[in-house]
Amino acid sequence: MAVSRRHPLTVLALGFVAVIWGFPTLWVLYATFASPRGGFTLGNLAEAFASAPFAQYAVNTVLIVGGLLIMQTIFGALVGFVLARYDFPGKSLITGLFLLQIVVPVYAILIQEYEIVQGLHMLNTKTGIMLPYLVSGIAVLSFRQAFRAVPRELEEAARLDGYDTIGVFLRVYLPRAVPAALAFAVISVTYHWTDFLWPLIVTNTASARPIVVGLAMVAEASESGLQWNLLAAATAIVIIPVLVVFASGTRRILSAFASTFDW
């Protein structure tokens, strides 16, 4: 573990690592902005934007990912609170139900999920994409863990001050779950905006299609072969925003990943 900071081998290894993981992405960004005649160009980017409704894909993605985050957080906080602080008959059964949601990934029951969404006439809608994900077991367990760590005395004190359950929940518990909520937000957003197969089979058209599915279609074979400059530019459109966000909050985002399963 005690790798020396200055050891030349370490520096070499770090350089190697940076090149292996960073270079392909840099190359695609370079290909996007480098004009074939030399110099800088926005032409590829403009062409990619014109080739598919990326703006609409992006809006769809924001609505889907944002909507899911809100719903998962609300459900997660409420259920987590109840499971952390109340005893009632059937509690372990219900806890097991939310664990089941973690244990059985959507991919494992894909075709049935598809048939349910089809039965609800929600194919090709953003709601249809969101439905199977509305409740997140990971959110429930994260909040439960955060709420458990809140000292009972704080709750008692608040009750003595005249707060009812909802007041205690809002004033005492929720503020102390903010770090867990933020960590969960990173996980949820990363998972859902990169999700591919489920939105692929649910969506038919640009009205509901998220950006990752739109991006995959650019890479598809076509009559006249692939337009490689478009492929690079479309990929750049998708990754530049996330790289900017990541670069500005690198450490916080990384520690959120590491605490994903810190229940």
Binding site: Q112, E115, I116, Q118, G119, L120, H121, M122, L123, N124, T125, N204, T205
Partner: peptide, 20 residues
């Protein structure tokens, strides 16, 4: 829908409320 999710079982009549 768990019980009767067979796609065609509702037939064409199911299309009325559909978004697509």
């Amino acid at each position: 829908c768990g019980g009767a999710a067979a796609p065609a079982s509702t037939g064409a009549s199911g299309s009325t409320g559909s978004t697509s």
